[in-house]
Amino acid sequence: MPDMDTSAPLLDVSSVAKSFTMHLRGGLRLPVVANVAFTVHPGECVVLGGPSGVGKSSILRMVYGNYAVDAGQILVRDQTTQEMADLATGDPRLVLDLRQNSIGYVSQFLRAVPRVSALDVVAEPLVTRGVERNVATSRAGEMLERLNLPSALFTLPPATFSGGEKQRVNIARGFITDHPILLLDEPTASLDAANRDVVVAMIKEKLGVGTAILGIFHDIPVREAVATRIIDVSAFSAREAA
């Protein structure tokens, strides 16, 4: 693998625009954001700020390839080649490759597969990257222990868990890999104070090894503890400009 230039951004978003078409309302076009532009470098935690509904989650989903863009570029540094790849092209193979090797994501809600244990849910990203299952499962257990999930729940499917328990499984799954870019969508929203502190420590450890983090944190103490820079998404709001 080529050496990484720590002075170069891992994520470079430029001139990105997004709108939604309301097909049930005669094709009404609803603009969301326009001219979105920012970079995230190794070791930075860039926080998307601004009021609810301004487009923060939409930006995060575009960066992960869940939402298509209307215009612009989302350049992601490929961990394998160290070249910048434009995720905004929407090429499904490219999106899947970048997700496996370059971009991790902790969403607000865990999409739990029925009858799959919490250990297997957390270990799965490592298994898909070629880590032996027993090693991956052992590391998954360590992550869940750190997040104070009762060991009695490890072999149970998370679909039956409480909201906070599900979120801890979600966090463990997102943090278990070494993706150079990590997207966080309100990771501590369902957690108590003790587990919020654990997640803050985990975020700082990621930053310490050069991970580039882009996140949304409505929890002000958490945001103040981890943010290296805050971007006011209101500046990109197409609704305000319309």
Rank of each mutant, 00 (worst) to 15 (best):
Arg139Asn: 08
Val36Thr: 06
Ala194Met: 08
Val121Gly: 00
Arg223Gly: 00
Ala152Ile: 13
Leu87Ile: 02
Pro9Ser: 04
Phe109Ser: 11
Asn170Glu: 12
Gln82Gly: 00
Lys206Phe: 10
Pro157Met: 07
Thr89Ile: 05
Glu240Cys: 00
Ser102Leu: 05
Arg168Tyr: 07
Asn35Leu: 01
Val198Ala: 13
Arg133Val: 11
Arg111Ser: 11
Pro187Cys: 04
Val54Leu: 06
Gly215Cys: 03
Phe154Asp: 00
Ile216Ala: 06
Asp5Cys: 03
Glu240Phe: 04
Val199Leu: 03
Gln82Thr: 12
Leu214Ser: 09
Gly43Met: 10
Met1Gln: 03
Pro114Gly: 05
Ala37Ser: 15
Pro150Gln: 04
Leu75Arg: 15
Leu144Pro: 02
Glu240Leu: 14
Ile74Trp: 06
Asp86Ser: 07
Leu214Glu: 07
Asp192Met: 07
Glu83Lys: 15
Arg168Thr: 02
Asn134His: 14
Leu24Ala: 07
Met1Glu: 11
Pro158Trp: 08
Met4Tyr: 01
Val113Pro: 00
Arg223His: 05
Pro187Ser: 11
Tyr105Asp: 00
Asp5Gly: 06
Ala225Val: 06
Arg229Met: 11
Ala194Ser: 13
Ser7Thr: 15
Glu186Ala: 04
Pro180Thr: 10
Glu44Lys: 12
Phe109His: 11
Leu119Ile: 15
Ser15Leu: 02
Ser138Ala: 13
Gly163Met: 08
Cys45Ala: 15
Ala140Arg: 03
Val198Met: 10
Asp178Thr: 15
Ile103Ala: 01
Thr21Lys: 10
Ala227Thr: 02
Asn170Lys: 02
Lys56Tyr: 04
Ala193Pro: 00
Val127Ser: 02
Asn66Leu: 14
Met84Trp: 10
Met4Pro: 01
Ala8Glu: 13
Glu205His: 14
Gln82Phe: 02
Ile59Asn: 10
Phe236Gly: 04
Arg129Tyr: 01
Pro221Ser: 09
Gln100Asp: 00
Arg93Ala: 14
Asn66Tyr: 14
Asn35Pro: 10
Thr80Gln: 15
Asn134Thr: 15
